[in-house]
Design a protein around this nucleic acid. Structure first.
Lengths: 102, 102
DNA sequence: CGGCAATATAGCCATAGGAGCATATAACCT
DNA sequence: AGGTTATATGCTCCTATGGCTATATTGCCG
């Protein structure tokens, strides 16, 4: 199964997650939102589902997809040790700017 | 140019970054660390460099690669709105566990 | 039951990308 | 200059993947 990182590599998939942040949506809503054919969207949803990033619920003929953020914690955890590094760089930049004509 | 997300999709590249967290390293060190040929490593380093995730410094025949964490801030920013979501889920789980036989 | 709506799956094509081998480049040393 | 070390680049191969069209599936409604 693809890693969460690999799943997030595709911009369309990130966009799907962004849309689902507002609440569950049927496939067709997502098709309208992204400029993609319905099968393409379904394929992305399958990848997201297999990665545990979305869940499905049936509503008559429709399938309502909902966000599952938990796997993103893994990404956040990987990122954690780096956070202090770019924060340090930004602080330094800020200090330089403060010193400039203050 | 590939997005930071796409660059991070490859496990070897994440591993390189993890190694570089400890400080700058010549290519050969990375070759020893990952089980890859030198050209493969150089290729990954090129991708990382073009994404701004590493910098190079010459030291005689060697090239010392150093981490640049700044582009990771973009990933962190994308992640931010999701963070509260999985934290909420984990809190709920914790509460259920606390309630279980307490 | 027949037909429509919503979604999933299959098959196909084109492209990207990661890996390896061979080779170019560059700097050191003698 | 010639050899050796360290790294980059070019080329090729293979696989993975994203997109599309066509079709299967499932459930609704008349």
């Amino acid at each position: 199964m693809a890693s969460t990182f690999a799943v997030l590599a595709d911009p369309h998939r990130r966009e799907i997650l962004d849309v689902l942040r507002a609440g569950e949506r049927p496939v067709n809503d997502l098709v309208d939102w992204l400029a993609l054919t319905q099968p393409a969207v379904s394929k992305h949803l399958r990848v997201l589902r297999e990665a545990g990033l979305v869940e499905v619920r049936r509503d008559a003929q429709r399938r309502l997809y909902r966000l599952r953020a938990e796997p993103l914690a893994e990404v956040d955890a990987w990122l954690a040790p780096y956070r202090r590094m770019w924060e340090r760089s930004l602080d330094a930049l800020e200090e330089r700017l403060d010193g400039m004509d203050g």
